[in-house]
Amino acid sequence: MSWIPPSVQRLLDSALVAELTVVNGRGEPVTHPLIPLWDGEAVYMTSAVLFSKKLEHIKRNPRVAVSITDPMACGGLTTRCSIQGDAVVVEDDLHDAWTEVMPLWRKKEPAIDFFLGKRFALPLFFERSVIRITPRRVTWWEDGDPAAEPQVALAEVSNG
């Protein structure tokens, strides 16, 4: 059973956008809005090579955080969370490997199949890397109030 709190899992299942924060070469945080995909163990995000700066940052420093904070993008769920974790960039085959997360992606953005059918019009957009994030620590605001003290769950503790 996953150590991730149920309310955070619901957020991960429903969120159409999350904020991925990575650390750039100067040690500054940089944040990118992306679709979070969740398979019950890891958070997946994909990035076209067109927007590859975040991939370079992750390869240099794999420590990242993902926040889900917009109720409008989460089917009205008001809980908010931030997940710190270790990211790996999977890009053995930029052309096809990312399609392994298509079933998760399709659930959130059914139109992706239509766009993939038009691959010829945006070939570089469909050369993609997968960012696989293993959660290490979850901070969440159950009622969504950022002024409140958040709850925290740690992977190590829950995994015993």
Partner: peptide, 8 residues
């Protein structure tokens, strides 16, 4: 070394 995030 991990980024910390909070809504505000």
């Amino acid at each position: 070394g991990y980024p910390v995030q909070t809504p505000a």
